[in-house]
C-alpha cells in the first residue's frame, strides 16, 4: 500500500513541502521543485508591480494546476494582517488550504502564538483550512488543533537559520498528541535534519532556505527528497533500541 498522508481531505504522496523564495531565478526554482518531488509549494502574496506589469510571474514557471500552491502569510505580524492576506490569497487562487504564520519579531521570526491562535479561529469560521506555523510547544499545538488547524507546523529552529531540530522531545510530544498532520516547518539546514524530523514521526517537512541557499540547490532538493523518504522509512521500520554498551553482531560461539 502506498504511504500517503492527507490534509483537509487532500491526499499527497510526497512528504516534502518546499518554498519558492530566495532562488536565483524562476528556472532554478522550478528545477529544484522537480528534483524535490514536492507536490506542494508555499507562495507569498504581494502587491503586483503596477509600474512594470510585464515581469515574469511565478505561475509562468510553476503551474498551479500541477503543483498545489499553499499561500503563506510570511511577513505578517498581526492576526489582522494575516487574515487580510489570506482573504486576498483565496480570491487570487480560489483555494482555502492556506498556511498561517503570524510572527512575533523580526530578529527571531518566532511565531506570536496569541495572534496565531486568534487568526486561526477567525479563518476557520470563514471556511479556511489553515496549516499553522507554531512554536514547538505541545500545549500550543493542542490549542491550535482545537481551534480548527488542519495541520500543526512547529518550528525545528528559527526560520532561515539552518540549525536543525533543536528540541526533538517537544516535536515528538506534539506528534504523539496530535490528531492532525504534524510537519516541521523551519530550521532544517541539511538532509540529516529532515531525516530526524521524519524519524520523530512527523507527517512531513517544509523547507525553503536549506534548498535555495545550498551551493547546488537542485542537488540539495534531491538530497532532501531522499532524506524525507529514508527518515519516513526508518520511522515505519521502527528503530532498534539504544544500549549503553556494545553488543557484538557476530556470534561469540565457535570462536577459534
Amino acid at each position: 500500500m502506498a504511504d500517503t498522508w492527507s490534509v483537509a481531505g487532500r491526499t499527497f504522496t510526497s512528504r516534502l513541502i518546499v518554498g519558492t523564495g530566495k532562488y536565483k531565478n524562476f528556472e532554478q526554482n522550478a528545477a529544484a521543485l522537480e528534483a524535490s518531488g514536492a507536490e506542494i509549494v508555499t507562495v507569498a502574496v504581494r502587491r503586483v508591480n503596477v509600474s512594470d506589469p510585464g515581469q515574469p510571474l511565478l505561475t509562468d514557471f510553476i503551474d498551479p494546476k500541477k503543483t498545489v500552491y499553499l499561500p503563506n502569510t510570511a511577513g505578517c505580524f498581526t492576526a489582522e494582517e494575516a487574515i487580510r492576506t489570506l482573504r486576498l490569497a483565496r480570491e487570487a487562487g480560489g483555494w482555502d488550504l492556506v498556511k498561517l504564520e503570524v510572527l512575533g519579531e523580526a530578529k527571531t521570526l518566532y511565531p506570536d502564538m496569541r495572534e496565531t491562535l486568534k487568526a486561526t479561529e477567525v479563518l476557520v469560521k470563514e471556511g479556511f483550512k489553515p496549516m499553522v506555523y507554531c512554536v514547538d510547544d505541545p500545549i500550543a499545538a493542542k490549542q491550535l488543533e482545537e481551534a480548527g488547524a488542519v495541520a500543526i507546523m512547529p518550528l525545528g529552529a528559527p526560520i532561515g537559520s539552518g540549525l536543525g531540530i533543536q528540541n526533538r522531545v517537544t516535536i515528538r510530544l506534539i506528534v504523539e498528541g496530535a490528531k492532525v498532520p504534524v510537519l516541521v516547518d523551519a530550521g532544517v539546514g541539511t538532509a540529516s535534519d529532515a531525516a530526524v524530523a521524519m524519524e520523530l514521526g512527523c507527517d512531513g517537512v517544509l523547507m525553503n532556505t536549506a534548498i535555495a541557499e545550498a551551493k547546488d540547490p537542485i542537488r540539495m532538493a534531491r538530497a532532501m527528497r531522499l532524506a524525507v523518504e529514508s527518515g519516513r522509512l526508518a520511522y515505519l521500520a521502527g528503530r532498534m533500541g539504544q544500549r549503553r554498551y556494545a553488543d557484538p553482531s557476530s556470534p561469540l560461539a565457535g570462536l577459534i
Binding site: 518554498g19 523564495g21 530566495k22 507562495v43 507569498a44 502574496v45 503586483v48 490569497a89 480570491e91
Partner: peptide, 30 residues
Amino acid sequence: NLEIVPRSTLGDVTVEDGDDYEIVTFVGGG
C-alpha cells in the same frame, strides 16, 4: 476599500472617486 472584490464581479464594480485598491498576486516565498 478593504473589501475583497470577487473575481466574478470585477466587471460589474465601477471605480469611484477616492477608492483605495490593493492588487496582489502570488510571488515566491517560504
